[in-house]
Amino acid sequence: MNSSAKTVFSSASHPQNYEVLREDHEISVLGAPSSQGTVSSTVINIRSDTAVPDHVVWSLFNTLFFNWCCLGFVAYAYSVKSRDRKMVGDVVGAQAYASTAKCLNICALVTSILLFVATTVIVVLNIAAIAQAIPH
């Protein structure tokens, strides 16, 4: 160490050098434990209980009742894949498949409800037109 670094640690009234300061703040390194007994360790496995909904029941319902363009069946397939990924422990894969199944279920449900409403409106309008065409 050069002499200019030593002057940083010295004061005008009480001169100290680097070695004295180093001895004042010396750290002792602890060694291994003195006992020769066995060292035991505890391993704690923390499972993340992230609940990943797989939407199987909703997909099965859409497959049986609102299966427009096979969206319900495809949603059911993704739901089963999500459940399989969840059983294996792949939470990210399960969430990806569950998200796709949810989107497909929403599309199947909305499309089926719109088709049901449109069919009902068309039938009611046709019945009204036929009722007006029949002479009283």
Rank of each mutant, 00 (worst) to 15 (best):
G37D: 12
A128H: 05
H14S: 13
I27Q: 15
A51H: 08
I127R: 03
G31A: 14
W68F: 15
S59L: 02
Q36P: 07
F116T: 00
K102F: 13
R22E: 06
I113H: 00
L71P: 00
L114Q: 00
S48H: 07
E26W: 03
T111M: 03
A101G: 07
P53Q: 13
M87S: 06
E19R: 02
L109T: 10
T63Q: 08
I44Q: 09
R47P: 02
G93I: 01
T63E: 07
F65P: 01
S34P: 01
L114V: 04
G72P: 00
V80C: 06
C103L: 12
S34N: 03
A118N: 08
V74Q: 02
S10Y: 08
W68G: 00
I130G: 04
D90E: 09
V74S: 04
L64V: 11
T38Y: 03
T100Q: 13
L115V: 01
A131Q: 06
S11F: 09
I27P: 05
K6P: 02
S79L: 11
A133I: 07
S40A: 13
M87Q: 06
S10D: 11
I44H: 05
I46T: 14
N67C: 04
D84T: 10
D84M: 07
S48Q: 12
F66D: 12
A12S: 15
S11M: 09
S99Y: 11
P135M: 07
F61T: 08
H136T: 15
V39Q: 10
N17W: 06
W68H: 07
V92I: 11
L30N: 10
V43T: 14
Y97E: 15
Y18A: 10
L104C: 03
S28N: 10
A77R: 07
V124W: 04
D49Q: 08
N67G: 05
N126L: 12
K81I: 08
A96F: 15
Q132Y: 04
S11A: 07
T119M: 05
A12Q: 14
M1H: 12
V91G: 05
L64Q: 11
F66E: 13
S13F: 12
G72H: 00
S40N: 12
L64A: 08
I44V: 09
N67W: 01
I127P: 01
V117I: 15
D49V: 03
F9S: 00
F116Q: 00
V20K: 12
A75C: 04
P53S: 13
A96S: 15
D90G: 02
S40G: 10
I44P: 01
S11C: 08
K81F: 13
A32G: 02
A101I: 02
G37L: 14
Q95N: 15
D54E: 10
S41C: 11
V88W: 07
G93E: 02
L125K: 09
A51W: 06
I106T: 11
R22C: 08
H55L: 09
T119N: 04
